[in-house]
Each structure stands twice: as structure tokens, then as C-alpha cells.
Design a binder for these strands. Sequence first.
DNA 1: CTTGCTCCTCTAGTCACTAGAGAATGTAGG
DNA 2: CCTACATTCTCTAGTGACTAGAGGAGCAAG
Lengths: 143, 143
Amino acid sequence: MSIGVAIGKVSQASGVKVPTIRYYEQIGLLPVPPRTDGGRRSYDRKDMERLTFIRHSRELGFEIDEIKTLLKLQDQPEQSCERADGIAREHLVAVKAKIASLQALQHELERMVEGCSHGRVESCRVIEILADHGQCQYHGEAA
Amino acid sequence: MSIGVAIGKVSQASGVKVPTIRYYEQIGLLPVPPRTDGGRRSYDRKDMERLTFIRHSRELGFEIDEIKTLLKLQDQPEQSCERADGIAREHLVAVKAKIASLQALQHELERMVEGCSHGRVESCRVIEILADHGQCQYHGEAA
DNA sequence: CTTGCTCCTCTAGTCACTAGAGAATGTAGG
DNA sequence: CCTACATTCTCTAGTGACTAGAGGAGCAAG
């Protein structure tokens, strides 16, 4: 039985800011926690994991709605294998697409940085490529 | 002396939507253009180039403030391009980290989907993978 | 001269936060 | 036990980078 953890501690541990945690509660991404006698939110280890997961997923470019689905997938692994499979498959497709897009972006950025001879803006490859769309190989969308 | 181009044409040519062009003018990213007798914005070739530059930079994940810096650099070709190079380099680092993390997620999703197809209701480790700091290489902020 | 397109300004909405005000609660020192 | 200070509470409003819609005016073709 763990004693409840205050929002500040959870914030520090998860890397999610305090107001953001309250915001997540508000939009239903995080379960409503019990309160202390004084009316303060009291979290447990599971909430902490959930928050770290959320933060990480956000950093990877997932939208809140996608994270909700992903969390549901975690919450009911025994329910319907088919359904879980479908959700996982969908996300797999999205993740693969995201990786492909980011790799294209990576190559383009590498091309820019490598081509830059560190001289003057006049002959800077970075500026040049940005200005001329024809020189660019990147046409996807980034997360 | 070129005859002014209407906002719709510039939009089509640059791939930036009409309201977005007006928005860019509002925030000072695009110079205020002259108007026709009827009060319509009239652009020239330079504006078009600038817009293409902006769109391209946005697609590559640069923020408006960064684009402002890049545009200022472009306007002074004599200067060193160190700053432009730095901005691009920073992005490259962030993008690489993101790809690594997404690949970890991809493997985990693949593992889940495979487990399902074999009839096993495997416990989902998506959260474990994404929530555990130790397993993750990505600690930067999203582009 | 009317039809229909483009353009104008303006306000408000989106997403995912972030900042600040003003009040209450919790805690460590004296 | 009292004070000082940190933390938390709720609430409203602001941010970035757009996007959508209302209501009206300009313009080119038939």
C-alpha cells in the first residue's frame, strides 16, 4: 500500500509540469486521483508510469487522442485480442510512416549541414536548399 | 517592374494557403505588400520566393522564430552562415533521436501483433517500453 | 448588368499547453 | 503553538501556428 504522492513529486519524477498534469486530468487522459483531507491530489506509482508514458509519447509526436487509444490498449490486454491487434496494427502503420518521413527529413538536413562549407551566407547550402524547393528531396510531412 | 500578383496566385505558386499568408503578414514574417486601387494585396517575385522559403522551412520542422533568423541571414549574404548551420544541426540531432525512439516503439508493436497472430494474449509492454527512461535514448524535445 | 469568383476584415475556434491571480493547505524552525 | 514559506488549489486568459466562418466589396466574363 503506497502512500499517495503529491503532484509536485509526480511532476518531477515524470517530467510533466504540474499544470499539464491537471490539464491531462481535465481532458480525461489521466484518471481523477483521490484527494487528501486538505483537498490535494494524491497519486500512486501507476499514475507516475502513465504520465511518463504520456510524456514520452508526446515527445514522439503522438496526439492526445492517439495516446488515449494506446493507453486503452495497455489497460485491457486480455479483452479482445482481435481488437487489440487491430489497434496495434494501426499504430504500427502510423509509426512506420512517421519513421519514413523523419528519415527523409534527416537525409535532407544532413545534406544541408554537410553541404555547408561554413563560409558565408552567400554560399551556404542550408539557405540555398531552403530557398529553392527544386533542390529538395523531402516531400513528406513531419510529425 | 513587375505587375503585382494577387494573393490567390501567390498561394497557389508557393503552396501556402491564403489565410496563412495574411497571418504571416500580421506577425511580421512577410513584408506588408502594396495594395491595388481596390485595396487588394499585390505581391512580387521576391515575396513569392520568400514564401516558398518559409513553407519549405516549416515543412522541415523549423519554427517561425527560427525562420525569421534564417530569413535575416539570407538578407545579409556577407555574414557567416554559422548560425544557419547551427540551427539545422540542432534539428538534425532532434530528428535522429526521434527516429531511434520510434524504432523501439515499432519493434514493440510488431511483437504485440505477432503475439496476437499466434493466438496468445500477451501482456502489452507498450507502456513499459515507453515509460521506462532506461530503455529510451530520446530525451530531447519534439521538433 | 448580373453572375460568380476572388478578395477584404473581423471574430472565434483548434490543440496542447503555459502563465498568472488569489486563496487555502502543509511543513519546518523557533 | 506560531510564524514563514513552499506547495497546492481553482480559475481565467494567453501562446503558437494556424483554420474556419460571417458578411461585405471588387472585378472579369457573358
